[in-house]
């Protein structure tokens, strides 16, 4: 376990009320997920029972207890995107990556997630890869999008 790393984050939030969510966000940003050992350590240091932390981690979609791929693909399945055919885009991604929603590819390059409305309805159907948003995505464009991130990975 990376004690120093977690300590650094904990120090930042020392004395801040309602700091747990902030801590969890930072830990997740650093490791791409929330490892059990780290969570238990946070529980010990903050005196927040591990059951409460576990409950919170489970409650929010944003938090993950499983390692995520280097590139996280979020397909918006909100109302507007759904109507504009986000389901087909999702199907294309599933087929292309050969994984299901919530899973990661074996090489840990991609993770696939569904989200409910990212507030970009005018761009429906929208797909977000990492921080980059793609609008009016057609199932055909899926491989191009994937390639962009694959290559950026290698380069």
């Amino acid at each position: 376990m990376d004690v120093a790393g977690v300590n650094e984050i904990l120090e930042k939030f020392q004395g801040v009320k309602g700091n747990l969510i902030g801590i969890l966000h930072e830990v997740q940003n650093r490791y791409s997920y929330l490892p059990e050992e780290e969570l238990r350590y946070i529980s010990k240091r903050t005196q927040i029972p591990i059951t409460q932390i576990y409950s919170i981690v489970n409650f929010y979609n944003r938090f993950s207890l499983e390692p995520k791929g280097k590139n996280v693909i979020s397909v918006c399945l909100g109302t507007a995107c759904h109507v504009k055919g986000a389901g087909k885009v999702m199907d294309a991604l599933r087929e292309k990556l050969n994984i299901d929603i919530g899973e990661s590819t074996d090489d840990m390059n991609f993770s696939l997630e569904e989200v409910r409305c990212i507030g970009a309805c005018s761009l429906a159907p929208a797909v977000v890869v990492n921080e980059e948003t793609y609008g009016q995505v057609k199932p055909k464009q899926v491989s191009t999008i994937l390639k962009q991130h694959e290559s950026s990975e290698n380069g």
Binding site: T51, Q52, Y54, N58, F59
Partner: peptide, 14 residues
């Protein structure tokens, strides 16, 4: 949680 103070049980998921 409130009476025993063991914090052994929790809710998960939604």
């Amino acid at each position: 949680r409130d009476k025993i103070g063991a914090y052994a049980l929790c809710w998960v998921n939604r």
